[in-house]
Amino acid sequence: MAAETVVEPREPAIFDIRDLWAYYGEKPAIRSVTLKIPEKRVTAIMGPSGCGKTTFIRCLNRLHELTPGARVQGEILLRGENILEMDPVLVRRRVGMVFQRPNPFPTMTIYDNVLAGYKLLGIKLRREEADRIVEEALRKAALWDEVKDSLHKRGTYLSGGQQQRLCIARALAVKPEVLLMDEPTSALDPKSTAKIEELVVELKQSVTIVIVTHNIAQAGRVSDYTAFFYLGELVEFGPTSHLFTVPRDKRTEEFLKGKFG
């Protein structure tokens, strides 16, 4: 049944996910998800709370397995290579993540937060190179103009929305191929939310984005493709414009009408 409601994207896929199951202990939170995620596009993951959105994207950078008792089964091909058989550290260098709540490192300056992906790994950079990476990442995250004069202040001194963009800059600084975002605006005010939505649309020129949201309007504004999850299953996947106007599955339709939230 799932076969007809899950559409193949027209663009080349960066992730090819096959029969993915994710468990907490014995309880499956993701059930047999098969899905291709198109490169350099924004894919929204949508569904009522508790349906497994967070669990799903945490599989894509191998964070899921850090939860005690959690395990994953199936295949997740990143450009043809199964990440479940790769070193998780290498996977996470290629697949960055932005979390639900901004989490800059409180002991670090704005500058060091952006470079955290290098500094924490003990990678030495020449001064000019470091400066260049910081500016580039902050510009990409649309934060440069606001912080260029306070780069050596603590990251936690920024507002919530700025902190979240700092976290985006931090993730972008190591030049990932994919950026996962787990409800990145749920802790932010409408203005900061709008800014981040704008940013997401812009970023897809250089990076593939998978964004979890339970906000239907947000998915409509930022995404090219939408995946609708329900009770751990992928119910429907297709171009956002199609899925929003002519949903094929009744549960998708009901969700879009706001029947469950």
Binding site: L66, V89, R92, M97, F105, L120, G122, A171
Partner: peptide, 15 residues
């Protein structure tokens, strides 16, 4: 979330 911020950057647990 702070541990995860670091791990998600590809930093191993010990570091």
């Amino acid at each position: 979330t702070l541990r995860e911020a670091s791990l998600a950057l590809g930093v191993n647990y010990w570091r």
